[in-house]
């Protein structure tokens, strides 16, 4: 039963994070801290998808490195490009 409650909570958190992402865009905020905030929300949501929805959490180290590594590599590279262009 707890398992399903967790999934429900994850869905609610992801929707709230999406709304916060939209709100930041709507208000026209920009700057490196905003970029970091938006990428952090994307990382949190993506981690839920990879770990809980795709059930990668608890699998072999190789697959965890591949999946989470992809996420961190892409988001950090994006953050660096924005940092350089500031």
């Amino acid at each position: 039963m707890n398992k399903y409650l967790n999934v429900n909570r994850i869905w609610i958190i992801m929707v709230i994070l999406t709304i916060s992402t939209y709100a930041v865009g709507k208000l026209g905020y920009s700057g490196i801290y905003v970029v970091l905030f938006l990428l952090t929300t994307a990382i949190i949501k993506s981690s839920f998808i990879i770990g809980d929805f795709m059930e990668v959490r608890g699998t072999s180290l190789l697959w965890r490195i591949l999946m989470y590594g992809w996420l961190w590599l892409v988001t950090i590279t994006i953050a660096v490009t924005y940092l350089i262009s500031q």
Binding site: V24, F53, M54
Partner: peptide, 22 residues
Amino acid sequence: ASYWHMVDLVWIILFPLVYIIR
């Protein structure tokens, strides 16, 4: 299901990157 989640995962990065971050 795993494939479907991958499609979702990609959009989660695409949305802020293309629509929001500036």
